[in-house]
Design a protein around this nucleic acid. Structure first.
Lengths: 348, 348
DNA sequence: GTGAAAGCGCTAACAT
DNA sequence: ATGTTAGCGCTTTCAC
């Protein structure tokens, strides 16, 4: 059996209470005593039972992560950020995948409550507001990436409007004057916000993004491929803002097939900065990065503050940044576009 | 504060001990008493504190998942399987990403020990044998996907030799006689095993896979693209086994550019069954599926048995299956090739 | 069939 | 500066 604090106390010749204080750096005591306790603890390879201590302290240093629909493309970087921020507080992550299933979700909430987690992070596939969790929970909740439709809840998500603005402005800086947009389904909130952002950027340049130049479709290469064919047949577009890197890849392939030069004839900006795709595209696809690792970090930090009694209700939107590549190489002119402080987190 | 078992006992008019037995379905007691206890527990929304009970029972119903290098492309389906198998035992998953960093790994092992997890699953990016964990742990360990170089440990991984065999045989059944192989770095164990499997399949048909027809390179589209150009220039290959779907995509693009018909001139089989890529390829890329969801399930089940005192040392290799698509559409003739019992797990 | 009592490993007042 | 005591929420003998 693993040694208990009693074993340490006995071996160090002190009482259990003193051993506890010694180990936790609390209370006052002779430095040599503390050292002796620490030494014997090391010798016996003592590891205090966290479950026992959380019984008295009331804190478990455990946070749940409930994902509502699986671990998609966007979860891993977010997870990495969450984990990194939690580990500075020596907190751990309990994983729960509810798979869009209300029964599973309910089940997991029970499990998390039974484990007395200190808090919960809820995430999901899209940034669209999600139905809030079914009942009032005995711990603070933070929605990350996805948002809660209840304004009293705390959410941190991507500023897609800003992302759209960044993308369009990059095309403008490349010299594009007639810009089209090929993107995902209009039912997706992020898609609509990116459109709004792109329009704002164009308006700032005295230009427009008319409805005829926007193509909505599934987030897939095919959408980009087909749309690009049509756009080239119709008129003289000189820049395309693609709503995802997959779409961008499809567009690039179509343009390549038509002998249209990228970026000289038509410049391209994608979205997601999915390096696997962006780098496989010829030429490399310039892309908007949602900084999900950062989102994960900030989400965990905010949750830790909520756990400490300082919740931050409302929706916070984080700016995107730009990964410049050859498909739209206009150089960066200010620093806000490259916020990527992520360490190497596997991205695909 | 959350109600304790004492609250339940008092409200139900029984002792704490009886309440405990009633709630856990243990001991003998009047059915009406048990019912009364259960009812009041529900009324008060009582959720027994698992940390407290694990103090006495010695089991935490928590399993750690240590990934040595991030959440890559292969982790999510594996995670899903692990979670599903654990949840039948109402066990939870504690997530630890060591990021190839020995210090982090050591840290997480301490954390997991302090939390008294019942067991640990270790996973990693490649199936290559990994250095075993640094010291003897106070709980059973199971290596999933990656394997341990210590034969006393338990590992469950993919049978890449079988995968290579499946792929080559599918090409043979399509009628191919001169088959080439474009794959990842030869330093990767899985790459070498797939070569061996492909060779076995060809040998069974009285054919060979000479070294000149094997191209090793990074797991990237470019590798496939370049290799395909060369292969078409050199000789009359009529089938290509691609070591990953990314490579397959590159090969398909090159063939398309050269006007080579797929599958009639050259048939293609990929590896990974990464639907996002396989479906984006024209035509759809037939691919070997490693059944990682299933691997995750079996890993968790084996670990649970180890926790119950029945470890299963050694390395177990799970067969692959085949996802037939248009790039090599020869029909299935036996059932072993399509084992995919996964539910819908997000795949990208 | 039910309850009293002890104890799991640890922390925290309160002595001394 | 150190030890005594009580108790966190639960389970588990062992009496009654």
């Amino acid at each position: 059996m693993a040694p208990t604090i009693r074993d340490i106390a006995r071996a160090a010749g002190v009482s259990v209470a003193t051993a506890s204080k010694g180990l936790n750096g609390k209370g006052r005591m002779r430095p040599e005593t503390r050292q002796r306790i620490l030494d014997t603890a090391r010798e016996l390879d003592f590891r205090p039972n966290r479950n026992a201590s959380s019984l008295t302290t009331g804190r478990t240093y455990t946070v749940g992560l409930l994902t509502r629909d699986g671990y998609g493309r966007f979860t891993p970087p977010l997870l990495g950020g969450v984990e990194d921020s939690l580990s500075v507080d020596t907190a751990s992550l309990l994983l729960c995948d509810a798979r869009r299933d209300a029964v599973r979700e309910r089940h997991y909430l029970d499990v998390l409550a039974a484990r007395r987690v200190d808090g919960l992070i809820v995430t999901g596939r899209a940034t669209d507001p999600a139905p809030p969790l079914p009942r009032s929970l005995p711990f603070p909740v933070l929605y990350a990436y996805t948002t809660s439709s209840n304004p009293d809840d705390s959410s941190i998500t991507v500023d897609d409007e800003h992302g759209g603005w960044l993308a369009a402005r990059q095309l403008l800086r490349q010299g594009c004057r007639r810009i089209a947009h090929v993107t995902g389904p209009i039912s997706v909130l992020a898609v609509r916000e990116r459109v709004a952002g792109a329009r704002r950027a164009l308006a700032e340049a005295g230009l427009e993004l008319p409805d005829e130049l926007i193509t909505y479709g599934p987030f897939a290469e095919r959408t980009g491929f087909d749309a690009a064919q049509k756009l080239m047949a119709d008129g003289k577009v000189d820049g395309i803002f693609c709503g995802s890197d997959q779409i961008g890849r499809g567009v690039a392939d179509a343009l390549g097939g038509l002998g249209v030069g990228i970026p000289d004839d038509v410049a391209l900006v994608g979205f997601d900065n999915w390096t696997l795709i962006a780098n496989a595209t010829r030429p490399g696809l310039c892309s908007v990065d949602m900084n999900l690792y950062r989102l994960g970090r900030l989400a965990a930090e905010s949750l830790l503050r909520a756990i400490d009694g300082n919740p931050e209700p409302g929706i916070r939107r984080l700016p995107c940044s730009l990964a410049i590549r050859a498909s739209c190489p206009a150089p960066i002119t200010d620093s806000t576009e490259w916020l990527d402080d992520s360490p190497l987190v596997p991205d695909a």
